[in-house]
């Protein structure tokens, strides 16, 4: 990850001796890593604590200062990105066949026109913090279909993604706003927590009750005083079980959308036109 970081910064670390790397970090990078006082310098780093001591190189290991500065810098990047899956990864004739065969028994369908567009998915990385007597944090990656507002129940085929966006005119309009998608994703996480073991919350509530009893004893039942209210609020602030959910970063994922205008001949011989969009990711046929 560290070597990748430098490469993304346009720098090429050189292994000057076995296990010790060196890179010329410029002023901007050093200031971002070490604060405004730092300046450009030859940065030496190693992953081995013995080499770090022997050569005075910055140690990169669990909890080390240099790893943390790099991690913090990386985490401030990549707030929003975009990627797409090209159409050619899907076999269009098979999709067409599938669309044509989806009509009701006895009906026949012909493709009048076809076009390829892109549908939108919103990938959100969410940090959930369950705060009770202790705080436990977990990261969740959820993908929301912006056409339907549904959360993808299966892993998104990330291996098909290619970096970058697509021309705006090829993107179908989304029906679900980003905010709705975020709230939907947050609700999904909350539901996950609700289905799991809730002892963390129960313990915190029991502790609040216990502390509140002590507080009442201290104030000798005068629970309408402002002092009591302030201390009660402090108690809640400290112990109330809360699940906070926040978005850490997001990405717009553009996925192929195959759109067909069909002529469907009914069993009675009458013709009607029908527009169908096929989303191979969600495997959905949508009537426009």
């Amino acid at each position: 990850m560290v070597l990748e970081f430098f490469e993304l910064c346009g720098l090429r670390p050189v292994e000057i001796r076995r296990g010790v790397w060196q890179v010329q970090a410029d002023d901007v990078l050093m200031k971002e890593l070490d604060g405004w006082r730092a300046g450009a310098r030859l940065l030496q780093f190693t992953f081995d604590s013995r080499l770090a001591a022997a050569y005075g190189a910055d140690l990169i290991s669990q909890g080390s200062y240099r790893l943390n500065t790099i991690l913090n810098l990386i985490r401030r990047q990549g707030i929003l990105s975009r990627a797409h899956i090209p159409h050619h990864l899907f076999h269009e004739p098979s999709i067409r066949r599938r669309i044509l065969s989806s009509v009701q028994a006895g009906e026949r369908a012909y493709v009048l026109t076809s076009s390829t567009l892109y549908g939108q998915y919103f990938q959100l990385e969410l940090l959930a913090e369950a705060k009770g007597l202790q705080k436990k944090e977990s990261l969740h990656t959820l993908v929301v279909n912006l056409s339907s507002g549904d959360i993808l129940k299966f892993p998104f085929p990330s291996h098909l993604l290619q970096a970058g966006g697509v021309p705006a005119e090829l993107v179908s309009r989304r029906r679900c706003s980003l905010k709705e998608a975020y709230l939907q994703a947050a609700a999904h996480i909350a539901q996950l927590f609700a289905e799991q073991d809730q002892s963390w919350a129960e313990e915190a509530l029991a502790k609040i009750a216990q502390e509140e009893a002590k507080l009442k004893a201290f104030f000798q039942g005068k629970t309408n005083s402002s002092d009591y209210a302030a201390k009660r609020q402090e108690l809640e602030h400290r112990l109330q079980p809360v699940l906070t959910i926040q978005a850490v970063r997001g990405a717009l994922l553009f996925t192929p959308l195959f759109r067909y205008r069909l002529v469907v001949v009914g069993t009675d011989g009458r013709e009607r036109t029908k527009a169908v969009s096929y989303d191979p990711i969600a495997n959905l046929c949508l009537l426009d």
Binding site: M1, L71, G78, I79, S81, L127, A163
Partner: peptide
């Protein structure tokens, strides 16, 4: 928009930080 590489790297950094 950040590049996809930065985004992927940042996600891995998030994981590592959460693990720590």
């Amino acid at each position: 928009f950040d590049t996809w590489d930065w985004y992927q790297l940042a996600r891995r950094a998030d994981e590592l930080a959460a693990q720590q």
